[in-house]
Nucleic acid binder design. Sequence first.
DNA 1: CTGCGCTCCCTTACATGTCTGTAAGTGTTG
DNA 2: CAACACTTACAGACATGTAAGGGAGCGCAG
Lengths: 210, 210
Amino acid sequence: MARSVPPTNRASAPEPAGSPNDTRRRIIEAALELYADGGQRGTGLTAIGERVGISHNAVLYHFGSARNLLFEVLQERQRRVLHELGWAWKGTPTEVIENLPATARLNVAKPGLAKLFTVVQAENLDPDAPFHDWFVAVRRSTRSALRSVVSKGMRSGEFRPDLDAGQVADEILVFIAGAEVHQFLDPKRVDLVKLYEGFTEALLLRIVRR
Amino acid sequence: MARSVPPTNRASAPEPAGSPNDTRRRIIEAALELYADGGQRGTGLTAIGERVGISHNAVLYHFGSARNLLFEVLQERQRRVLHELGWAWKGTPTEVIENLPATARLNVAKPGLAKLFTVVQAENLDPDAPFHDWFVAVRRSTRSALRSVVSKGMRSGEFRPDLDAGQVADEILVFIAGAEVHQFLDPKRVDLVKLYEGFTEALLLRIVRR
DNA sequence: CTGCGCTCCCTTACATGTCTGTAAGTGTTG
DNA sequence: CAACACTTACAGACATGTAAGGGAGCGCAG
C-alpha cells in the first residue's frame, strides 16, 4: 500500500453539510452531470474540480484515478435509478410491462441519469474499452430480470405460452436503448413518453394471452 | 483563402493505385475503421496516418483538419450504406418494411459502417457537439422517408388507415438505433438478424390491414 | 491551557503523453 | 523551376498522474 488511502465513510449517520464526505459527494454530483454531457473522453478532472471549486488533484485525492471516479459515478447512477424505479419491478408480470413508461418519465424528469449511461456506454462498445465488461454485465443482468418476468407471466397464464422470453427481453432492451439515443439527439421532436406508451401497448397486445 | 487547398479529383476515370487520390482514399479507409473502434475522441490523426504509413501531417495536408476528415468519413459511410441498401427502399410499402432485416444483414457483414455511425452519434448527442446538427438532420431525413413509406401504404390500402405514420417511423428508428448498440456491446449473445426479423414480423402484424 | 505533532484535505509545481495545427523544408516529377 | 506530396520541427492545449508542501483541527503530554 504505497498510496494514501482515500477517506472511507466513518459514520453511517446522515452527514452534515461540512463533513469530510461532503466534497466527495459534490464531486460525484458534478461528475454525473459533466460525464453525461461530454462523455468520459470529453470530460477532464480539471473541469470536474472546477465545478466543485477545487483543483483537479483534489479530485484525484478522493478517488485515486479518473477511471475510479467514473466507476463510482456509474455505480451511483445505478443506485439512483434503482431507487427511483425499483417499485416498477414489483407486481405481476403484466404490471411490470405496463410500468415501462415509468422509465420514460424518469428519463424526461432526470435526463442526466440516462444520458450518462447512453453516452458512456457508447464510448465502451469496443471490447478493449475500460468499462466494456461492466456494461455487458449490466445488460445481461437486466436482460435476465426481464426474461424472468416474461417467463413468470407465461407460467402464470398471463402471457401467451408460445413466447420466446429471451427474445421479448431483447426487444425491450433494444427499445429502451434506441429510445434514449433519439430522445437525446432530438428532444424537441421525440416524445419519449408517447413512444414508450405506444411500444408498451403493442408489446402487451402481442404477448398477453387472449 | 490563406490555406492550401486539398487536392481535388481531377479525373473521373477509375484511378490507378498510385494516383494522387489513392492516399486520400486509403486515409478514409483507415479512418473509417479507426473511428468505428475508438470514436472521434479516441482516434488521433497520428493513428490514422500510421495505419496508412504516413505522418499525421500528411493527413492534415489532405483534409485540412481532423473535423473535416471525420465529416468526409461520415459522408462516405452514408454513400456506402445507400449503395448497399438502396434497393431495399424500392418496391411497395409492405416490401420496404419486409426488407428491414437487410439492414441487419449488412450490419453483420460490415459492422464497421454501423459501428462508426453509432459510436460517433453517441459522442454528438450534446447540442454543442460538432456533428450534433448533422446527426439530427440525418435522423429527420430518415424519419421522413420512413413516414412517407407508411403514409403511402395507408393510402394504398396496404396498411391500416388509422396509423400514426410518424409514430411508426419513430418506432422503426428507435429499434434500429437500439439494436446496433446491443449488437456491438454483446455480439455473442445478440442475434441481430433474428431480432430484426422478430421486430419486422410484429410490426407488419400491427400495421398491415387485415 | 498550552503547545506539539499527527492526520486530513487540499494546494502548487512538475512530469509526461497525446492531440491538433502551423511553418518551413525536401525530394520527385513534369 | 514550379507544383505536389509529403517530412521534420515545433507550438499550444489539455489530459492524467506524482511529489511535496501547507494549513486547519484534533488529541494528548506537560
